[in-house]
Simulated scan of single mutants.
Amino acid sequence: MTAFGIASRFCPNPAGEISDRKTLPKTLPRRGNPDEVHAMGLKLHVAVVCLSLFLAGESSAGDWPNRAVKVVAPVGPGGYTDVMARVTTDRLARMFGKPFVVENRAGAGGLIGTEYVTRSAPDGYTLWFGGGAQFTSAPLIKKLPYDPVTGLAPISMFVMNGLGLVVPPTLPVKNLSEFVAYAKARPGKINYGISGTGQSTHLAAALWASREKLDLVMVPYPTVPASMLGVMTGEVQMYFGNMVDLVEQVRSKKVRLLAVSSSKRLALFPDTPTFVEEQRDFTFTSWVGYFTPTGTPAGIIDKLSKAVSDVCREQEVIDLITGMGAECIGSSPGELAAAIQADLPLAKAAVDAAGLSGK
């Protein structure tokens, strides 16, 4: 625990502990009374320690960073989350004049990297960059050895990304309504691909199929590229994918994009409607952002949040993110915390629809 964290926990007002006259005795302890002498000495000692810890916490926030900062991505290299992490770390390094180094700690659906950060020192030198599923659906699917909500403090949501429903270009459907009719006429014969159990591609597809009362067959793939190959070859007839993973295949017409699950149309594909526009009550988005171990000084969190927000205002970054079918956000810590709470009901419904509750 940092000095600031200790002071905050044990000294609710560490600076005021010795500045408020009400906290000090009006008279000196009576001579010869060792209990009073000890009590006064102990109180003064605690007050001095608390003030020292408070000032140390303020100093650490002011000096931060004075060495390299590690950014843990709980995924393998090369994917969407990893790429987004590196987009930010390059710019954060320039802003702060110290290296921000991405460290990939993949495995167990993000559990390994996430647990590592929750158990790291809250000093601002180990950060977490990942997706919202770790806070919403993951705890519902299996018992975790940590609590991501209490173990990680929000810094800033970096990017929000809608999902797209794609089908093989040879499938005889041109829009969402036609696909629903096609699938309902063939119960148990339409396959849909997922790229990881419990991931957004799985949860979105299961929830939507449940709401539409479609009898579909799930086909699991180990990776996003494998899932994309499955839909391009017609091995599966439907795939819900993050838009950043679909852009090139949609542009090259290797898959057909029927609708997007964001709240509004994408500038990249303005002719593709949202599910809501197609009279389907369905909005499903994913996001990635920065967190830090709980107990990190507020001054460091504020510095990082402002820096991520500044990154999101760079035109080069805006063009890059928009070109990937996503939206740069740059939220405050409070806004990110609120987003997690708002996502919980939808996550619960999706996990139930996927039959993963309590596993």
Rank of each mutant, 00 (worst) to 15 (best):
Y290W: 10
R9I: 06
G57P: 03
F284R: 00
Q199F: 05
G355M: 01
Y125L: 04
K184M: 07
Y182P: 00
T114H: 02
F135Y: 08
F129C: 08
E235L: 12
F129A: 07
N66E: 12
L176P: 00
P273V: 02
A349S: 09
P34I: 12
W287I: 06
P148H: 11
V311I: 06
S227V: 10
A347I: 01
M1Q: 06
V180C: 01
K264R: 09
G196S: 00
R265W: 13
V236A: 02
G132H: 05
G230I: 06
S227M: 15
K189L: 03
L24A: 14
P293F: 01
A354P: 05
L163E: 08
P77M: 07
N242I: 15
V244T: 05
I6Y: 11
T285Y: 10
V219Y: 08
L203M: 01
G198I: 00
S261P: 00
T23S: 14
P297G: 08
V102R: 01
P25M: 09
P169W: 07
N161W: 00
L28N: 14
T223C: 03
G230T: 09
F291V: 05
Y239E: 06
I6D: 06
R94Q: 13
S137H: 13
A326L: 09
T322Y: 03
A298T: 13
D281L: 08
F240C: 07
M95C: 03
R21A: 11
A209H: 02
K213W: 01
Y125P: 04
G196Y: 00
A106C: 04
S52P: 14
S262N: 06
Y116N: 04
A108C: 03
V231R: 06
E327L: 09
F96D: 01
R91V: 02
T23G: 09
M95Q: 12
Y116V: 05
L214F: 00
K189I: 04
L111A: 07
P74M: 15
V260G: 02
Y182N: 00
T114Y: 03
D90L: 15
N242M: 15
P297S: 15
V149E: 07
M95S: 12
V149H: 14
L140E: 11
K43C: 13
A209R: 03
T294R: 11
R211K: 04
A47L: 14
G97I: 09
E58Q: 09
K43Q: 11
P145V: 13
